[in-house]
Design a binder for these strands. Structure first.
Lengths: 139, 139
DNA sequence: TAATAATATTCGAATATCCTAATGTGATAG
DNA sequence: CTATCACATTAGGATATTCGAATATTATTA
């Protein structure tokens, strides 16, 4: 809900080993030792990452004899992660100049998306900050 | 591409102030001072976060007089962030028991998704780890 | 040209995160 | 019951992040 919650979730996901674990588990449940061998990381470390993921309910486990089989508790997150840029930066992005023109209102569509007190040279005049535009006196 | 890259991107996004900045910029370009006032954070701090975001090309800016108007360089990422859980944990998730049954092959669909050397009690017998199953001798 | 507004940069301390090594625990096999 | 396997936990040092304070930079304004 809050930025703080989202941030802590993203920080949790922001670790290569944890991402690797999630990828593995996306293919089905695995016990700790299997995960450990697949990742070639020390057992304690894998266990710590699993604990961290479990604390946020990213994963959970069921017990099978003496094994603990971890699985993704929220598959939705795995899909979110699949949305990360596959190559470097495939997303089309406008040049600074393009955005600048848009912000100035030379292109209707993007300019409309900018709130009325959006700033960046409102159709001529000198640059103004938001505070200036909202305060009563518009000298 | 790599887990390392994805992880560093997620860590970058995993900060409440940076998320707030991204939300603001999703509505249109804003100069540093405006952002700073909206977030009620010290200028240097906002500037530092903007630098961090720019280093990963999450944001970019154009200059307008003495103002620097920042904007989202990759709107796609904002959409990815919109996919974060709005409330606590809305995602439907199976009980550990459900997953356990699935993994055991009592339900066809999920079991099929588990790779052939997936483990977790393959239809009876004792629990086996992956290494056991792939090694030749199956005692 | 001097002053100022807007923003960037640097430094250092506080804090958080990560990893390794060592040890603890609980279930099962013998 | 003892040993062992699978895993968890703790402690700590190393490393990385974060933030505030002070200072630098750069464009505009007077």
């Amino acid at each position: 809900m809050t930025f703080r919650d989202h941030a802590s979730l993203l920080r949790l996901l922001g670790h290569p080993v944890r991402l690797a674990i999630i990828q593995r588990l996306a293919a089905g449940p695995r016990c700790v030792t299997d995960i450990q061998e697949l990742l070639e990381k020390p057992q304690a470390n894998v266990s710590q990452h699993l604990m961290a993921l479990r604390a946020h309910r990213i994963v959970d486990y069921y017990e099978d004899g003496k094994l603990r089989c971890y699985y993704l508790a929220r598959p939705g997150l795995a899909k979110l992660l699949a949305g990360l840029p596959a190559d470097g930066y495939a997303v089309v992005r406008p040049s600074p100049e393009q955005v600048r023109r848009d912000a100035r209102g030379l292109r209707g569509e993007t300019a409309a998306a900018i709130p009325r007190n959006g700033r960046g040279r409102q159709l001529g005049g000198r640059p103004r900050r938001l505070a200036e535009l909202t305060s009563g006196r518009n000298r």
